[in-house]
Simulated scan of single mutants.
Amino acid sequence: MISPDLPAELKAALDARLQGFSRNEAASRAAAISRTYRDGGGSGAIKSGTDALAYALARMPATYAAVAACLNALIGIRPDFAPTSLLDVGAGPGTASWAAAQAFSSLQRFTLLDANATLRTLALELAGTRLRDARYELGPARKLLADAERANLVVASYMVGEIDEAERGALAGLMWEKTREALVIVEPGTPAGYARIIALRTQLMAAGAHVAAPCPHDEECPLEAPDWCHFSQRLSRSRAHMQVKGAEVPFEDERFSYVALTRTPIATHLSRVLAQPAVGKAEVTAKLCTPDGLAMARVPRRAKADYARARHWRWGDAVSEA
């Protein structure tokens, strides 16, 4: 399992590029880019080296933390998974590739795809020793995917929402076609992000995919609106990160939705904790998605061993019901 915080080598590479970089200018550019993303503009708002660095400073830590949490969930379900090749779709500054490199020492071949030349330049500057030999292809996602080699692990983080609905299905089909073993798709933890994840989950299960995480089954999602499946990962903020975000606390809680799909069925299904459990003196209460659907687990204190175990459950954990 890997930490949600950026690796030391990546932090050092970012810090080196921040020398003489105006925090006020970075904060202004990061805010403008965020507004463009919220309005559906995507990474086209990132046009200069200053834009790319401001974006990386503001968003790279949280994106890394979310992808790390998703890969940790996959490892928890498939501890034997040891991919040798990675295909990072919509790679941006290389955040997901960094997370995968930390999660899987077995990785030898890294291929990154993106249409933004400025983010590609930054990614190559930040590559470090682990990603030094990575291939970073520049161009439209569908064309690059069509030409790409298949990989054991394919990751698409925070990019599906940047393309229109008509394009998503075709892109998802190509991503699955290029997946040898596992595909991980990560989106913002909003109702809209969750809806995109569920649509792609449905499409790819029809194509033969099996859900490894977060769902403990291959059935239809049992949640009903206004509820939606999302998770939260806490990460620490550097001083520069706090300045760019205009934040006063040294941590951030990134909310995300995701699905990890595999070519082979999962042998053992564990329940998933869907919200932070309530730990009381008399019992632990937790909302679970189980192989049989939704359930509210109540673990009484008198069941000492089960209660002690349930007290350590956290939102997003895969657990055996007490």
Rank of each mutant, 00 (worst) to 15 (best):
M1F: 11
D5E: 12
P7E: 04
Q19E: 13
F21G: 01
A26D: 06
S28W: 05
A31D: 12
R35W: 01
Y37S: 00
R38H: 04
G40S: 07
G44I: 00
G44N: 11
I46R: 12
Y64G: 06
Y64R: 01
A69M: 05
P83K: 08
L86Y: 10
G90N: 12
G90L: 04
A91M: 05
G94I: 13
F104E: 07
S106I: 11
R109S: 10
A115H: 14
N116R: 10
L119R: 09
L122C: 07
A123D: 07
T129L: 08
R130V: 14
E137G: 00
A141G: 00
L145V: 08
L145I: 11
A148M: 01
R150E: 15
N152Q: 15
V154D: 06
E162A: 12
I163G: 02
I163T: 14
R168T: 06
L171K: 04
L171E: 09
K178N: 07
T179Y: 06
V186H: 12
Y194N: 08
Y194C: 04
A195V: 02
A199G: 10
T202H: 12
A207W: 04
A209G: 05
H210S: 13
A213K: 02
P216L: 02
C221V: 02
P222V: 06
P226G: 06
W228N: 04
F231V: 02
S232H: 09
L235K: 09
A240V: 06
G246P: 12
E248K: 14
E248I: 05
P250E: 12
F251V: 01
V259F: 08
T262I: 06
H269R: 15
G280N: 11
D292S: 14
V299G: 06
A303Q: 15
K304C: 00
D306I: 04
A308W: 00
R309P: 00
G316Q: 08
A318C: 09
